[in-house]
Computed example of a mutant assay.
Amino acid sequence: MVNLIDAHVHLDLYKDDELEQLMTMTNQVESIISVSFHLDSCKKNLLLAEKFEKVKPAFGFHPEQALPPGQELEELFNWIKENQDKMVAIGEVGLPFYLRTGKNVVNFSLERYLEVLEQFILLSKQLDKPIVLHAVYDDAPIACTLLEKHSVTKAHFHWFKGDYKTLERMKNNGYFVSVTPDIVYEKEIQDLVRCYPLEQIMVETDGPWAFEGPFKGTLTNPTMMKESIKVISQIKKLTEPEVLEQIYRNTKDFYGL
């Protein structure tokens, strides 16, 4: 019986008592890919990886926030290069869809974010590491174009949401997607899984993000992925062990675990 792998979580954002509780719930979890928000987040994830063998860190800059000055970004890129052997991927990086489409957004410029994403894509190619992307809806085809421009194929679009034309493009390029526990109650995510190859799907929690439905009021934790596996198996008309085995292999191979 293979174990689960959480393909995307923000361990550094859990409170200390929550993290302690979380780590007691990982008996059936082989690895946890903990992605980063910024340099301090990268450093904390590295410390967590040194403390917990299951934690596999990814280093990057989350796009749903203001970009730091160029000097700080340069420091982040240099730190990542210095610690490349301690990470499994570049991430989380991407484009600020929710930031720029939210209320009270004025004079937002996407150009600088595109430059930074392209820098991260080039870094992933230089270091030969997978890249974890936050690129949803209209941002997804933009990210695809940048990946294609630099012939980067080892890309993971986490918690993906977008149109079928983009999904087809991603599928043909060999990109991976991961789904959160909201697949249990969100038709949009169920439809995505229905049309995407199982061989290119992973599961994640994106904790500590909280979920609705049967998970309302529950600390987001890796055991929730069992419910995701159950729904995926129903959609794909396969047994749960078959789906778990395939998704485990997808994630392990993608991240070189």
Rank of each mutant, 00 (worst) to 15 (best):
9 V>R: 02
99 L>N: 03
219 L>E: 15
151 S>N: 13
212 E>G: 09
188 E>I: 14
73 L>Q: 13
10 H>T: 03
198 L>M: 09
214 P>Y: 02
70 G>D: 04
62 H>V: 06
112 R>K: 11
244 L>G: 12
79 W>M: 06
135 A>L: 07
33 I>Y: 13
236 K>A: 12
171 K>E: 15
36 S>P: 01
256 G>T: 13
58 A>F: 07
13 L>V: 05
99 L>I: 08
74 E>H: 13
122 L>K: 13
171 K>Q: 06
188 E>K: 12
11 L>P: 04
51 K>G: 03
89 A>T: 05
65 Q>V: 14
205 T>V: 11
98 Y>K: 02
233 S>Q: 08
196 Y>M: 01
22 L>A: 08
166 T>P: 00
168 E>N: 15
29 V>R: 03
50 E>P: 01
245 E>Y: 09
167 L>H: 06
252 K>T: 11
238 L>W: 10
11 L>M: 12
43 K>N: 06
17 D>M: 01
44 K>A: 11
10 H>N: 02
76 L>D: 07
68 P>R: 12
171 K>G: 12
13 L>I: 15
35 V>D: 00
119 Q>F: 05
251 T>V: 07
203 V>Y: 02
64 E>S: 10
118 E>A: 00
67 L>H: 15
77 F>S: 04
28 Q>T: 08
246 Q>W: 03
107 N>S: 04
243 V>C: 01
152 V>L: 13
146 L>G: 05
2 V>N: 13
216 K>H: 09
93 V>P: 02
168 E>S: 13
100 R>I: 07
65 Q>H: 08
210 A>F: 13
120 F>I: 07
1 M>W: 11
185 Y>K: 11
100 R>E: 07
28 Q>L: 12
83 N>A: 12
137 Y>W: 05
91 G>K: 10
137 Y>G: 03
98 Y>R: 06
14 Y>Q: 12
103 K>I: 00
105 V>G: 05
190 Q>T: 06
130 P>E: 14
19 L>V: 09
155 A>S: 01
62 H>R: 09
192 L>G: 09
240 E>L: 11
8 H>P: 10
15 K>Y: 05
233 S>E: 14
18 E>S: 08
241 P>I: 06
114 L>Q: 10
57 P>W: 10
245 E>L: 04
101 T>G: 10
177 V>S: 02
106 V>L: 15
9 V>Y: 00
100 R>Y: 10
199 E>M: 06
